[in-house]
C-alpha cells in the first residue's frame, strides 16, 4: 500500500514538471489539436456513412455504442500519453543508455522512466472523448461512470501493453517494432465492435491484446451493470499491469548484468 502511494506521488510530481515543460512549446499545440480533431471527424464521418448505408446495427452495436468505444479509446489513449508518454520510447531509452539516469535515482525505475515525458497533443485526444460523449450520451450517469472508469483502466492497460512489448528489447535487442505493432493492434481492436471478430481474435482480445477489457466490457457494464463482471474487469487489469511490471524488472536484470544483445560499437 505504501508502495502504491509512493508511485502515485511520483506520477503527480512528474506530471507537474511535464506540464511546465509542455508549456514551453505550446505553439505547435494548436496545429496538432487541429490535426487530431480532423482525423477524429473523419472517423465519425465513416461511421455515419456506414450506418446510413445499412441502418440498424453493425456487429451488435448501434451508432451510440460505436461512439462510446471510440470516445473511450481516444480518452484512454490521451490519458496514458499525458502521464506516460515515454511508453513509446522505452526501447530508445534502453538502447541509448538513458536508462542509467533512472537507475541512479532512488525512485521506482519503471515509473520514473514512463513519467518523464508528456505528449502535449494528446490532451486533445483526452478532451475529444469527453466532447463526443457529451454529444452522444448527454447526461446518462451510468454511462459516464463507466466511461471514466474505462479511461483509468484503459490508460493503464495500454501502457502495460507497450511496456511488455518494449521489454523484449532486454531479451532480443531492438523491440521498437513489436512495440509499435502492439499499440497499433490494441487501438485497431478497440475502435470497432467486438462482434465483427470471431473465435481466435476474440480470444486474443480477452487476453494478450486485451481490447475487450479496455472498451467493450465497460460498454457492457454501462448498458447493464453486473457487479461480477466489474470485479473480473478490475482483477484482470490489476493482474495484467502486475505482470507487465514484473516482466520489466526481470528484463532489467539482464541490463544490470550487462548481457544485452545491443552491440554499441
Amino acid at each position: 500500500m505504501k508502495k502504491l502511494k509512493n508511485i502515485l506521488y511520483l506520477i503527480g510530481l512528474y506530471f507537474k514538471v511535464n506540464l511546465a515543460s509542455a508549456m514551453e512549446y505550446r505553439s505547435s499545440f494548436l496545429m496538432q489539436a487541429f490535426g487530431m480533431a480532423l482525423s477524429n471527424a473523419t472517423f465519425v464521418f465513416y461511421w455515419w456513412i456506414a450506418f446510413s448505408q445499412i441502418g440498424g446495427r453493425i456487429g451488435g452495436y448501434d451508432f451510440k455504442d460505436v461512439m462510446f468505444i471510440w470516445a473511450l479509446t481516444s480518452s484512454a489513449f490521451g490519458a496514458s500519453n499525458i502521464l506516460f508518454a515515454n511508453m513509446f520510447r522505452i526501447t530508445t531509452i534502453i538502447v541509448t543508455g538513458e536508462l542509467d539516469t533512472f537507475l541512479l535515482q532512488p525512485k521506482d525505475v519503471l515509473i520514473s522512466l514512463l513519467c518523464s515525458r508528456t505528449a502535449l497533443s494528446t490532451w486533445g485526444d483526452l478532451l475529444y472523448g469527453f466532447v463526443l460523449m457529451a454529444l452522444t450520451h448527454g447526461n446518462d450517469g451510468m454511462v459516464w461512470l463507466m466511461f471514466l472508469l474505462g479511461i483509468v483502466i484503459g490508460g493503464l492497460l495500454m501502457t502495460a501493453i507497450s511496456v511488455t512489448a518494449h521489454t523484449f528489447t532486454f531479451y532480443f535487442g531492438d523491440a521498437s517494432l513489436i512495440g509499435d505493432i502492439a499499440l497499433e493492434f490494441i487501438i485497431n481492436f478497440c475502435i470497432y465492435p467486438e462482434g465483427i471478430y470471431r473465435g481466435f481474435v476474440r480470444a486474443m482480445m480477452l487476453s494478450v491484446i486485451p481490447a475487450s477489457f479496455i472498451v467493450h466490457i465497460p460498454l457492457k457494464l454501462a448498458r447493464s451493470f453486473q457487479p461480477g463482471l466489474l470485479l473480473i474487469l478490475l482483477a484482470f487489469a490489476a493482474l495484467y499491469c502486475f505482470i507487465a511490471y514484473k516482466f520489466f524488472y526481470h528484463g532489467l536484470k539482464k541490463y544490470e548484468s550487462g548481457n544485452l544483445i545491443i552491440t554499441r560499437m
Binding site: 448505408q53 445499412i54 441502418g55 453493425i58 456487429g59 497499433e184 465483427i196
Partner: peptide, 20 residues
C-alpha cells in the same frame, strides 16, 4: 492488420444489411 480489421468490419456490415 488494416486489411484484416476492415475485412471483419465489412463482413459484419454485409451480414446486417444490403450495400449498394
Amino acid at each position: 492488420v488494416f486489411i484484416f480489421v476492415f475485412f471483419n468490419l465489412w463482413r459484419a456490415i454485409y451480414q446486417s444489411g444490403k450495400v449498394a
